[in-house]
Amino acid sequence: MTNAAVAADLIADRLVPFPKSHFLAAADLNPPFVSALLDLGDAFVELNRSSTKALDLLRGRTVLNLFFENSTRTSSSFEIAAKRLGADVVTMPVGASSVKKGETLIDTAVTLNAMRPDILVVRHGASGAAALLSQKVGCAVVNAGDGRHEHPTQALLDLLSLRRAFGDVGGLTVAICGDIAHSRVARSNVALLSMMGARVRLIGPPTLVPGDADRWGCEVFHDMREGLAGCDVVMMLRLQLERMDGALMPSTREYFRFWGLDREKLAWARAGAKVMHPGPMNRGVEIDSDVADDLSVSLIQDQVEMGVAARMAVLASLAMRLESAR
């Protein structure tokens, strides 16, 4: 049998229906299902690395990519994932069309719903937008990032990358560093990592770490040296440069000096610690190229690869639920 055929068998074995009708937040998952989804993800990685990447698990299904915010990597990751599963994919950069004409989110949703898609992948700048849409449409909704609320597939792909690098996520100490306050990636990762038994620390300047973040079950640090001590994983977040305008941060050079990850700071973490970043990176602001490009410590390229596999697992699992609901 070819590698692709082995992978396809593995996928068929491991396929499990999604526990909810939508995937809006990390809380829609549960630990046994996450493990199953990661197993499935591993199989998709094998498939993606073979020469025949196409499957027909979503044949006849329409996946609508609805991106109200600009995004290249997430929308193409979802598009590739859906296409490899055999779906008909339409990617709509909504930012450029009807929204500008004044149509409300719900009107757009109702209109698109009438075209009978099966899965709606949504990114929107407002927290809660994906949940609102899910109440108004008849198809499955996948949250691809809503405001500063959640980005659950990102957390899932991070988990897949970590499990492949460390074997097990339980017991790992993961430091999420930077602009926690405005980060949906941080919120989803805190929820999912904690669910899977990792210890999560949050590190950043006090203006960028919510004051009540310690109640999320995380330890909060404002000093990188203290926060990184004993960490297995350093997950850097992107610093939005417009944060300088609102007096949240004085300058990028000061940010890099105190919270940017370079060799010196990475040495404060446990030996062999891995570095992650959801991308796109501001080199020289939150991360030094020296660290980001060192494949012996950086999982950043892996994260992109795992993104497609994890999203294939989510879409396939949601499609299976749609199948069984029929």
């Binding site: 300088m244 007096a247 949240l248 941060m249 004085p250 300058s251 050079r253 000061e254 000096r257």
Partner: peptide, 18 residues
């Protein structure tokens, strides 16, 4: 405390402290 003592953008408090 703010750039140019202008009251709108934070000055480099960390670097000045150092």
């Amino acid at each position: 405390a703010t750039k140019g003592r202008g009251g709108s953008r934070m000055a480099e408090i960390g670097l000045m402290h150092e």
